[in-house]
Amino acid sequence: MLELKNIWKTYDTTPALAGVDLKVRQGETVVIMGPSGCGKSTLIRCINRLTEPDMGDILVNGDSVLGLSQAELMAFRRKVGFVFQQFHLIGRLTVLENVMFHLVLAGFDRGWAEAQAAAALAKVGLSHVHERKPDELSGGQQQRVAIARALAAGPELMLWDEPTASLDPILVGEVLEVMEDLVRTTQTTMVIVTHEVSFALRVAHRIVLMDQGQIVEEGPPEVIFKAPVSEIGLKYKKLLVS
């Protein structure tokens, strides 16, 4: 479904991605892990071109994402759900509006959009906070709203950029629970960037380890964490054992 070919991205003179190749199958959940600054977030942002790669190509269902026109890119993005590390909710809108507004702007009926949003919020357990503003919610709730927003349009691909990284450890659980539930109950293709090893172990079909802008190892979680070949893999194994 998704194929990244030789993706390069350099910030000033520092390469963030150095020739990344990755394939994700339809319905597959791929968890990308690696130390901070290894290029995970850059890679996932390149997929829907929130960050423009310097070189390489990204194919979705065989079509190059980098060759899309502005309108096509917008259409593509509407099919891709993206959950940010820091929620990225619109502060002036209510929870319900945050979840439905892109549907309305995409041309859907307002009523339908509202119903979709309500359903998405219900899915993440937030039916009771429709009229609240994001800053009236806890971090975990905000992230769940962000997840609901990503789910509302029924995405073909979900991209998660460290969705629990900015959460208080106590709140991490509620988000991971929602995510795990989604993975298990939907057939949506997911690419998740996270540091949550146990979560990865539970939900990932495949784990991709990155270091210094490159994929250093990939494979099923039980393989990666049991018999890692890369230095990073070994570190994760130690972490998992401990």
Partner: peptide, 20 residues
Amino acid sequence: KEFTAGQALGLSNVQIMREI
């Protein structure tokens, strides 16, 4: 953050400008 969210949600620039 809001701007990027708009982009990620597939909004056009004019929509991002008008709504965000």
